[in-house]
Design a binder for these strands. Structure first.
Length: 298
DNA sequence: CCCTGTCAAGTCACG
DNA sequence: CGTGACTTGACAGGG
C-alpha cells in the first residue's frame, strides 16, 4: 500500500500547476511556466520520497492549455529531457502516479464537440505519462460522465466511445464511481463490457451507492485491475463537517481513516487522500498505517 | 500592496 | 433558474 495526495504541496512553496489566462498566452510565457512547473514537480516528488509518500497525482495544469488550439508550441520535444529525468526519479523510487482530468472531460457527452475536446485532453494526459516513460500502472482517472435522463443509453455511449479510443489512452484510462450518477455497480457493468479498471472512491460511495457493502466493492473492483494495471487505486476522503455534504474535509479524521483501513483489511491498494491540507494529512495517515501489514516500508 | 472578479472547457444537485 | 460543487484556487486588473 502506498499513500498519496493530489497535485499540490503546501509546505514547499512552489506549485507545479502554475497557469495563466488565455488572453495572456504566448509561447514564451508557456515555456517559462512549464519549466517552472516541471522543476516544482521534481521537488515535490523528492519531498515525498524523503517521507515515504510514494503515490502522487500530477496536476492537469502541468502544461497550461496543452489541448487548446492556441497551443502550437511543441512542449513535448522542448521538455523531453526534463520529463525523462523526472520519469527516472519516479521509477527509481517506485512512485505510483495518477492524473485526474477535470470535469470537462466527458466522453459520453451527447455533444460531439465536447467529446472531441475530451479526447484531446486525454491525449495530453497520456502524453505526459508516456514522456515520463511510465508503465501502464500510471493511470488517468475519469468519471463515466453525464446521464442525460437515460442511464442505459449513456452507459452504452461511454462503452462505444471508449472502445474507439486510441490504445495510448485506453491503456491508462480508469473510471471511478461518482457522487451523483454512476455507482460502483454501474462502473462494474462498464468494466465487464470494456475491460476498463475501476477505481474505488470511498467518499462517493458513501454518497451514492446501490447497496453494495464496502468490503464487497473492494472485492469486486480489485479484480478489475490486471497485473499490468497495478494494484487498485482508491480515493479516500471524508466530508467537511460544516460545509455541504459534498465538500471535502480540511484535515484527515484518523478515527474514520482507521476504520476504513479495518474494513478494507484483506485487500491491498494504493490510496489517494483527497483532503485539503494535502501532505499534512498524508503524513498523519502514514503514521496510522505503518502497523498495517499491507504497508511495506521502502 | 491588497482586494476581488474572473478564469477554456460540462453536468447535476440543491436552494 | 441561479449558484456551487467537483481532483486543485490562482491570476491579474484596479484600487
Amino acid at each position: 500500500m502506498k499513500i498519496g495526495y493530489p497535485c499540490i504541496n503546501r509546505t514547499i512553496g512552489c506549485t507545479c500547476g502554475r497557469t495563466f489566462r488565455l488572453k495572456n498566452f504566448s509561447e514564451d510565457r508557456l515555456e517559462e511556466t512549464v519549466r517552472s512547473n516541471l522543476l516544482c514537480l521534481l521537488n515535490i516528488l523528492k519531498f515525498n520520497v524523503e517521507r515515504t509518500i510514494l503515490f502522487f497525482r500530477i496536476t492537469s495544469d502541468l502544461i497550461p492549455f496543452a489541448s487548446h488550439p492556441v497551443c502550437t508550441f511543441h512542449w513535448q520535444e522542448r521538455f523531453q529531457e526534463q520529463f525523462k529525468e523526472i520519469g527516472m526519479f519516479i521509477r527509481r523510487h517506485d512512485i505510483r502516479i495518477s492524473m485526474h482530468p477535470d470535469q470537462f472531460v466527458v466522453i459520453n457527452s451527447k455533444d460531439d464537440a465536447v467529446v472531441e475536446r475530451s479526447i484531446k485532453e486525454l491525449e495530453y494526459h497520456a502524453q505526459v505519462l508516456d514522456l515520463l516513460g511510465l508503465d501502464r500502472s500510471a493511470k488517468i482517472q475519469i468519471h463515466v460522465g453525464g446521464v442525460y435522463n437515460d442511464k442505459e443509453k449513456s452507459m452504452q455511449r461511454f462503452i462505444d466511445r471508449y472502445n474507439a479510443l486510441d490504445d495510448l489512452i485506453k491503456k491508462r484510462l480508469v473510471i471511478e464511481n461518482d457522487d451523483t450518477s454512476y455507482t460502483v455497480t454501474d462502473c462494474l457493468r462498464i468494466h465487464f463490457a470494456t475491460g476498463i479498471p475501476v477505481l474505488f472512491d470511498y467518499f462517493h460511495h458513501q454518497l451514492n451507492s446501490s447497496e453494495e457493502k464496502m468490503a464487497d466493492a473492494f472485492e469486486l473492483l480489485s479484480r478489475t485491475w490486471s497485473e499490468k494495471d497495478g494494484i487498485m487505486m482508491v480515493d479516500y476522503s471524508s466530508h467537511h463537517g460544516r460545509g455541504s455534504k459534498r465538500s471535502h474535509a480540511f484535515t484527515i479524521d484518523l478515527r474514520d481513516f482507521t476504520s476504513f483501513l479495518e474494513q478494507s483489511k484483506p485487500f491491498d491498494y494504493d490510496v489517494m487522500l483527497e483532503i485539503k491540507d494535502k501532505e499534512e494529512s498524508a503524513l498523519a495517515a502514514l503514521q496510522a498505517v505503518k502497523k498495517d501489514s499491507r504497508f511495506i516500508k521502502v
